[in-house]
Design a binder for these strands. Sequence first.
RNA 1: UGGGGCAUAGUAUAAUUGGUAGUACAGCGGAUUCUGAUUCCGUCAGUCCUGGUUCAAGUCCAGGUGCCCCAGCCA
Length: 563
Amino acid sequence: MSETEENIDDGGEIRDFVRDQIRDDLAAGLHSGIVTRFPPEPNGYLHIGHAKSICLNFGVAAEFSGRCNLRFDDTNPTKEEQEFIDAIQADLRWLGFSWGETEFFASDYFDQLYAWAEHLIETGNAYIDDLSAEEIREYRGTLTEPGRPSPYRDRPVDESLALFRAMKAGEFPNGARVLRAKIDMASGNINLRDPVIYRILHEPHPRTGDAWCIYPTYDFAHGQSDAIEGVTHSICTLEFADHRPLYDWLIESLPVPARPRQYEFARLALTHTVLSKRRLTQLVAEGHVNGWDDPRMPTLSGLRRRGVPAAAVRDFISRLAISKSQGTVEMAMLDHSVRELLNRTAERRMAVLNPLKVVIENYPEGEHEELQAVNNPENEADGTRMVPFGRELWIERDDFMEDPPKKFFRLGPGREVRLRWAYFITCTDVIKDASGEVVELRCTYDPATKGGTAPDGRKVKGTMHWVSAKHAVESEVRIYDHLFTRPDPGADGDFLDDINSESLNTLRDAKLEPSLTEFPVGQAVQFERLGYFATDPDSTPDRPVFNRTMALRDTWAKVKAKG
RNA sequence: UGGGGCAUAGUAUAAUUGGUAGUACAGCGGAUUCUGAUUCCGUCAGUCCUGGUUCAAGUCCAGGUGCCCCAGCCA
């Protein structure tokens, strides 16, 4: 595994503004150790954008001999589910990260957070507001106009305290009242216009059950949770920069055990896909894809199912910059990391996706032989295997043209090509059906070319893959393309309108060489000349199903397209 | 003058803090090849704008412009 790191200085350290900050803080003696955290909300599956945050937070912790906590930000039981908690942990492990014995939950701190809320009321820094959600919005003002104080803003401390306790006791319905921090209704930063910090939610929580009917908001939970855990550097994405003043205000207003600091970096955006949880959830909920782990999804589980190795994801992330400028990375960048890793590690096999029958007329009927093939030219240790060869073969339809252009190196009438690891064959006849479609080729082979080289030194331009018809394993192969037709889905209207209707092409008549039945689910393999594939969990013992992880680069396709 | 953030090749970024604009991906061309793969070689292309300071500006100063985020009792 050779994961390249982009921004490395001569000392081998990764350089970016977050790590620079940490080095400075360490040099200034601010901390004895570094603690970060990865704080997913369990309301969806992890995607490749999360991988950037994961690699940053866990990476930083490892580089500075610190610790990274996995902490679920589970403060909104209306959206969160145990299924997501389990999936997030599974995806993290797959990606290759571990977080020690325990995982943390914001809900573990509900008692402490509640006590701090009371403290805020007692110190005159928070109040119970009876305004409705709509009224609060009206009073908040707009982006350019200041807000107005709620009529309940100066309610006596005792009254707020009593009301807050009544809220906790379940005496009010959802939405009846909220607890608000008392900060500045005229602030240019809307997060400081008396933000709601506790709301009534009569909703069972995946972890605390019915213990609570009031729940803290993100803003009231996150920084304090960081403080409780001794997090030194709370690294989040740019959209939270506006929240930092509130984060700091709460830390300063409360008797918390530590002073964590928040730093923001630009989240990952990728072309030809979407990475917002709202959109991904919509794709799943409305059935545009077959679940969170659909191989077309940018989720970690989708990538895994498609056959993308975790190491390739990590390599891709390592090439990214940690910065504050929000760009969109080309999907080709990810493709490159996948191909580079798989080229080195995936064994090669032969499979015919769109079969065309070939009969070798001068090969003895009823006989076959075993020919030796190299498993991986990039890794001699992978050895060789035997592949059965016979009189009737399958070749790829695309590898034959009746009237080929000059640059076409493959099979055509009267042409000679090499069958990989086997023989040179020459096409002698083309059989068509009533509609004129080619259904079979008649060929002859040269026994002297066994193994693929001609003793007389003659050359052929093309080498093709093939599968013995008698020994072929019937299979289904799923070919994937970008989920969206354009690089920026939704930029020009509804993102659903940009869904690629041809993102999944299921080939039900694929022919595999026999050894392909030995590949366990998820194991990467290269089908020679076609791409990298991995077995899908839908496979059955008698009918394997393969997903195409990534096509090989195809310069012929480019030549052909140019005409 | 609501607040916050960001501008370097097609894309993502680097530039020792004022001293030759470098890297990766993509593209293009070629060599090698029993995968039209891989590998190798070559090549294209960039500092948002306008002024200013300076021997010297991507970097400093002034003024513009453009893009992103914020008006959830989501995170």
